[in-house]
């Protein structure tokens, strides 16, 4: 058993907790807090959704015209003649 933490501290560590990015002691403290705090369990589920949204709803496609220009740029990359800018 580690020393107990409050909701504020548990919530502050939530995202890193979900990613397994906390050290063992901090991870354990959050786990113990979540074992009895229903309010923070809701926060965990929400943080998981929110993190997923950030990852899945920020997709950006490379437009064809940009791809064409960049391909031409890359064709000259490293031969000493490349220069920035667009035609």
């Amino acid at each position: 058993m580690t020393s107990p933490i409050g909701c504020g501290e548990a919530v502050r560590r939530l995202w890193e907790f979900l990613d397994g990015g906390l050290d063992q002691r901090d991870q354990r403290q959050v786990e113990e807090h979540l074992a009895w705090c229903l309010r923070c369990c809701g926060e965990v589920a929400f943080a998981r959704e929110l993190r997923g949204l950030l990852r899945t709803r920020t997709g950006i496609m490379l437009p064809d015209d940009v791809r064409d220009r960049m391909e031409r740029f890359i064709e000259h990359l490293g031969d000493g003649t490349e220069e920035r800018g667009r035609p």
Partner: peptide, 17 residues
């Protein structure tokens, strides 16, 4: 040059995003 161009082509969509 070939290695860098290959790397740049592969990574282009990710770098642009």
């Amino acid at each position: 040059r070939a290695a860098l161009r290959q790397l740049a082509r592969t990574e282009l969509p990710r770098l642009y995003a």
